[in-house]
């Protein structure tokens, strides 16, 4: 593995700065059948809730121009089963392991974070931005005050480095990022999906039972990039950038905008090996540009 891509994020050394985004990579098994997942920088597992959930009813995925709307509703096995059944597998995959934790209440977040202290993970990614469940965390991540409160409490109990995943649906994402930093977050990742609406015109009703659903994929890229740029200029902690990344150019844009690492989500559904193409492309870019490390371009724009 080329050292030009070696990245240390929140004290964790990774092969490269490319992480599979939560909810788009399961816990690694499925795509391990398709390509060598040890080549990734890291994997953020499907979003967990304390007791698990069977997710939302009705339509769950809907394609839009260059985008995808989803209303999965955090279907997940729960923290305990994750620790027992999924975590050892992710660890054996040989790249950094991120556990993504959502919650329905402050108590759930804290109990989940405490349980995850026994898990062999590298980073706790606190999801205060899931748009698809009533109290799916997004409520916590929309305002700086509630963000500060929840991050402080989770930081006080977790022994893992804490990455706080922000919602683009926040009233002011920069203020929320600063609140997370102030409350002790070791880094922030952004963005989660954008709240959108799809209407089944023939049926004269909303496509999704929850009415609104999360938009992701290339369609959101320029907005996500702008938000990463704004946040990276406003905080001192590392920023993990994501939202619509599909090509090596997209990835480079996020680094130039200030991201220390990136996550790749929806494009994997369309092109399972997209992350490998991006990793190879980044390596080639460093070589061509004579960079000793990709970090040299972080925030140059």
């Amino acid at each position: 593995m080329s050292s030009a891509l070696t990245t240390t994020l929140l004290g964790v050394t990774m092969n490269n700065p490319v992480i599979a985004a939560s909810g788009t990579f399961g816990f690694g098994h499925e795509y391990a059948e398709r390509f060598d997942i040890s080549r990734l920088g890291g994997i953020s597992g499907k979003g967990l809730t304390l007791h698990g959930s069977s997710g939302n009813d009705g339509m769950r995925v809907w394609e839009t121009p260059a985008g995808l709307m989803n209303s999965i509703g955090l279907e997940n096995p729960g923290v305990r089963r994750f620790i027992k059944e999924e975590c050892p597998y992710m660890r054996a995959a040989g790249c950094a392991v991120l556990a993504n934790l959502g919650g329905h209440s402050e108590a759930d977040y804290i109990a989940g974070a405490e349980l995850l202290n026994e898990a062999d993970i590298d980073i706790l990614e606190l999801n205060i931005s899931c748009p698809n469940v009533k109290a799916g965390g997004m409520a916590f991540g929309v305002l700086p005050k509630s963000t500060e409160a929840i991050v402080k409490k989770v930081k006080a109990v977790t022994k893992h480095p804490l990455l706080v995943k922000l919602s683009p649906n926040a009233e002011n994402i920069v203020a929320v990022a600063q609140a997370a930093e102030g409350a002790g977050a070791d880094g922030v990742s952004l963005v989660n999906s954008f709240l959108g609406l799809a209407i089944d015109v023939a049926g004269k009703k909303a496509v999704f039972e929850n009415v609104y659903a999360g938009l992701s994929g290339p369609a959101i890229m320029p907005i996500a990039l702008r938000m990463v740029h704004q946040v990276a200029h406003a905080v001192r902690i590392p920023v993990v950038g994501l939202g619509g990344i599909a090509t090596v150019n997209d990835a480079l844009s996020f680094f130039m905008a200030g991201a220390s690492a990136i996550q790749v989500g929806t494009i994997t559904f369309a092109q399972p090996d997209a992350m490998l193409t991006i990793i190879d492309g980044l390596e080639r870019y460093c070589l061509e540009q004579g960079l000793l490390n990709i970090a040299e371009i972080i925030g140059i724009v």
């Binding site: 909810g23 499925e30 059948e33 499907k46 769950r60 995925v61 999965i72 279907e75 994997t268 559904f269």
Partner: peptide, 21 residues
Amino acid sequence: NRMACGAGACLGCTQKTASGN
């Protein structure tokens, strides 16, 4: 069922069955 990834990763195609999702 409508699908996004086809590979088992997105949980978009979930089917309720006698033995769970």
